[in-house]
Design a binder for these strands. Structure first.
Lengths: 147, 147
DNA sequence: ATTAAAAAAGACGTTTATGTCTTTTAATAG
DNA sequence: CTATTAAAAGACATAAACGTCTTTTTTAAT
């Protein structure tokens, strides 16, 4: 309802790489996809995009894989949303009215505006690093428990 | 992002019927679709479903069309969401984790829970009648201004 | 240099949301 | 009762999201 599956895969993917980083190792696609129970090739596309957008780093070849870069932990969730879903839709009217605005509000304009602002605030203030600092001992389990 | 197009069409459709009702007349599909700039046959399906679900009334044949019933104005927006989108997705984890709950929360569990509750509260408390009582003089314009 | 490993790239397939078209059913006027 | 009108029903079409498979490119060890 709120976000695409790609967003969830992206976030779990980058979190997995961050956890591997704590063990001073890179994470490879095969491992990530398997541990997170996410379609391998689909995840590949998403990881690739994140690399292109500078959220992650990757190296090819033997001993290659995905790793963090200087920006990863400071990346805001909103940027992930932007990469996987786009942010324009946040501003779209629920009634599909293009000319819906405060001058000519649809019947749900202000109600939705509030919900939207709350959501944007949440996703803007939270970074990848924030999620990792929660010190949840079951963190790994929580991002991979799918069944 | 939040809701399907069908939801927007459904709400605008039923509001249009309510406005026609204030003029003591039924609204026909051709008129509604044209005035709201919504695909006729697609809207037909949605209107039909709303009739089946008891949100609206319809009569076939000459001088037929869609009209309100005793329940229409008391219908909560959540019921429209339920008809067009389903409500299960409100409870789905953004990370697609099936076993995400307060015992085993994903990193975004509580943040999303709050947003979700706010949204459900909004949609639960607001009825079709509430939207009509806002006395917005540009109401008709606001639900049909699409271009 | 050669080979193997791993990501990048891109073609292809499936499913779901959205949209269109035609036929059927029901109601009313005359 | 017949013709007409309008919704109901259902088949078909398109676009976007989601997923799979194969080939190419890059890297590193030997």
């Amino acid at each position: 309802m709120f976000l695409s599956k790609s967003f969830g895969y992206a976030l779990r993917g980058v979190l997995y790489v961050a956890l591997a980083d704590k063990e001073d190792r890179k994470a490879q696609l095969d491992e990530i996809a398997e541990k997170l129970s996410v379609p391998r090739h689909f995840l590949a596309k998403i990881m690739k995009t994140m690399v292109k957008e500078g959220v992650l780093q990757s190296t090819k070849g033997p001993y290659g894989g995905f790793s963090l870069n200087e920006k990863t932990l400071d990346t805001r969730l909103l940027q992930l949303v932007s990469i996987t879903d786009g942010v324009e839709q946040f501003n779209a009217c629920v009634l599909s009215l293009r000319k819906c605005n405060s001058k000519n509000p649809c019947p749900l304009h202000y109600q939705m505006l509030k919900l939207r602002d709350d959501m944007l605030a949440q996703f803007s203030k939270t970074t990848i690093g924030d999620l990792l600092n929660k010190e949840n001992p079951d963190f790994i389990k929580s991002i991979s428990t799918i069944v």
